[in-house]
Design a protein around this nucleic acid. Structure first.
Length: 367
DNA sequence: CGGTTTTGACCACGA
DNA sequence: CTCGTGGTCAAAACC
């Protein structure tokens, strides 16, 4: 886990921050005495999230789960119910679950570390001062240079071995960040993504189906390619800054290269199903997915995937910041969904409900 | 009639 | 300043 420790990548969503991040020993002991269900989960959660910086996605849910049970048990105990050793039993269940989650977290962290290391290697190979750009301008002596042309050469010059290798597939995609100067002198990162799609050579429409709606606003024949280049803007939202250039490959006329600049500031239009793999991942929001961009690679936790889908893409300016993520996580809707999920899990836990029912029944004769 | 596409003209930029 | 090039605009044509 050395790689992950060096990596700035952190998946800790800080869900339920007060009780998850810093459960003091005294507090843990208090919980154990109170409800008797904490077991070792509390201490292990603290060590995994705090000292190792390990992935904490489902474990946070577990902590919510634990808190919910704890409150129930506390309530029952205060109401005078004798819960016996329910807590110890639940602690064992929780511990087993937590061991499973910890193992999953370890695998995810390894994967993220690997991806981050690859990202760093890729950045190091770029020219000085443009850390995240691939070495493209210098590698293409015949390509034009300059601001616009420099960007253009970056987009097209990598049609070498790796590219041709990719072109065996129907779709290829790559992500490149381009720094574009702003009026105030600062640089802003624009996400540039290129997707190659193999189409029918007789099809001259230059249409690349990617799930979004585009409006063509220009066409130009460029110097280094006899095929015309078509310029598109996103037509779904007038304020959407995304542009797309589509041009047939100079080497293979059956391949069209679509270059996307910027990120969509709106959800993907509904009914968009024919998406060429990651071409559609740009900025479209996926329900129940969270993107974190804190000066490092963007981590997407797809909560719709069982087991927590984790995806790393490069940092983009349009990604929501950590505060926004925390706000989303702290929102009543998110918490309500969590509580509902936990309640469902609780009611589905036969042993727990049986023990609780037994405790309640034991108390009934008193009334 | 409104939205989209086409296409020539124009602009910005670097050499 | 001129030239070449890529990118964009906008009127006309089209659907």
């Amino acid at each position: 886990m050395d790689t992950a420790r060096r990596s700035p990548v952190c998946l800790d969503l800080m869900v339920g921050l007060p009780m998850v991040r810093e459960p003091s020993p005294a507090r843990c002991a208090g919980m154990r005495a109170d409800a008797g269900i904490v077991g070792s989960a509390c201490g292990r959660a603290a060590s995994t999230t705090m000292t190792n910086g390990e992935v904490c996605n489902r474990s946070t849910t577990l902590c919510f789960f634990w808190l919910y049970r704890k409150n129930l048990l506390l309530f029952a105990r205060r109401a005078g119910f004798d819960l016996g050793n329910v807590g110890d039993f639940q602690a064992k269940i929780l511990e087993a679950k937590f061991t499973e989650v910890s193992e999953e977290n370890r695998r995810l962290t390894e994967m993220i570390g690997y991806l981050y290391a690859n990202n760093q290697n890729f950045a190091r190979q770029g020219p000085e001062g443009e850390g995240e750009q691939p070495a493209s301008t210098a590698a293409s002596p015949t390509s034009p240079v300059g601001k616009k042309r420099g960007r253009e050469s970056m987009e097209t010059s990598d049609s070498g071995d790796a590219n041709s290798d990719k072109k065996i597939n129907m779709v290829e995609a790559e992500h490149v960040d381009v720094k574009s100067p702003l009026s105030n002198g600062t640089c802003r990162r624009i996400k540039v993504k290129r997707v190659c799609t193999r189409i029918d050579p007789s099809d001259t429409s230059l249409v690349v189906k990617d799930g979004y709606q585009w409006r063509k606003y220009g066409q130009k024949v460029t110097r280094d390619n006899p095929s015309p280049r078509a310029y598109f803007r996103c037509a779904f939202a007038p304020s959407c800054p995304v542009k797309k250039k589509v041009q047939r490959s100079a080497e293979d006329s059956s391949v069209v290269e679509a270059t996307y600049e910027g990120e969509h500031n709106h959800p993907r239009p509904t009914g968009a199903s024919e998406l060429p793999s990651c071409a559609a991942q740009g900025g479209g929001s996926v329900p129940c997915s969270i993107s974190i961009n804190s000066s490092g690679p963007t981590i997407t936790l797809d909560l719709t995937k069982n087991g927590g889908g984790v995806q790393v893409v490069e940092a983009g300016e349009a990604q929501p910041d950590l505060k926004k993520v925390c706000r989303e996580v702290a929102s009543p809707e998110f918490r309500a969904a969590l509580v509902e999920q936990m309640a469902r899990a609780l009611t589905g836990d036969r042993k727990f409900t049986d023990a609780l029912a037994a405790a309640i029944l034991r108390k009934l004769p008193d009334y």
